[in-house]
Design a protein around this nucleic acid. Structure first.
Lengths: 133, 133
DNA sequence: CTTGACCTTCCCATGATGGGAAGCCCGATC
DNA sequence: GATCGGGCTTCCCATCATGGGAAGGTCAAG
């Protein structure tokens, strides 16, 4: 299977497949006589695994660990769970931060008349650092 | 005022002040005879404005627009509000996405025994793409 | 045997930030 | 007035994950 077929089958772009190989996330693919990368169904499964982990928001370093756990027959599910829970906490922390920002800004926007006049609590807050009352 | 003093006064690192100048977010600072950048209180106020906008999660392109609106005496508060509301929606959309990811992953993690056995719904879901029942 | 689609590697860009090197400058101390 | 520590300058590189594009080799169909 050529790289573009592996890309279509796995949902990872050819560009990224090469990149993952370059950074050692996946082992180097076999090559045809002409130097084309050749992929097996097994390798496509690995790529799809990576795609699903990315879709769950795992960064590549953590995916590296997940791949290692996947291929480790003697893994402890506790190790996988710990990784996942840690990641969940990071996702939730980021979400909370964004929600807080949005709510702060929403308060400012609600106080802004949004008409043709120049006076605007949003700008004023950025200028002074104070929240309007 | 030297760049490090402007940095301390504005809360923006000297590194970033130079960067903002390089990308044209702020006009080039004046220079002393020796070539050192010199900052006035006015420029520090601009930098603090940028810092506060960043703290609210505005990306630099939007901050560019906010700076233009700030210095525009004939601005319409509606323009500021539109920018802010658009940004709020982006923040909320991102937050929703992260929350969803966390909740999906939480379901998987809850189903994982987290002990010494290798069986793990998290890994299985990444392998098959199916959520365990 | 040409043509078009594919493959290869290599470089560059994103967005915001930081690290670090090489070299110049300023002020204070001896 | 020489020296030294710290601050300033520019320039390059790194992050994280991804994509764009160029230059050149290869394959398959007409």
């Amino acid at each position: 299977m050529n790289i573009s077929q592996a890309a279509a089958a796995s949902g990872i772009s050819a560009k990224m497949i090469r990149h993952y190989e370059a950074i050692g996330l996946i082992p180097p693919a076999g090559r045809t006589a002409a130097g084309y990368r050749a992929y097996t169904a097994r390798e496509v499964r690995i790529l799809a695994f990576i795609r699903r982990a990315r879709a769950l928001g795992f960064p590549l370093p953590e995916i590296r660990a997940l791949l290692a756990l996947w291929s480790d027959r003697d893994r402890h599910s506790a190790d996988v769970k710990r990784l996942a829970v840690q990641h969940i906490e990071q996702l939730e922390a980021k979400a909370r931060m964004l929600t807080e920002l949005a709510s702060t800004l929403r308060t400012l926007a609600d106080a802004c008349s949004g008409d043709a006049r120049p006076d605007c609590p949003i700008i004023e807050s950025l200028v002074s650092g104070e929240r309007p009352a």
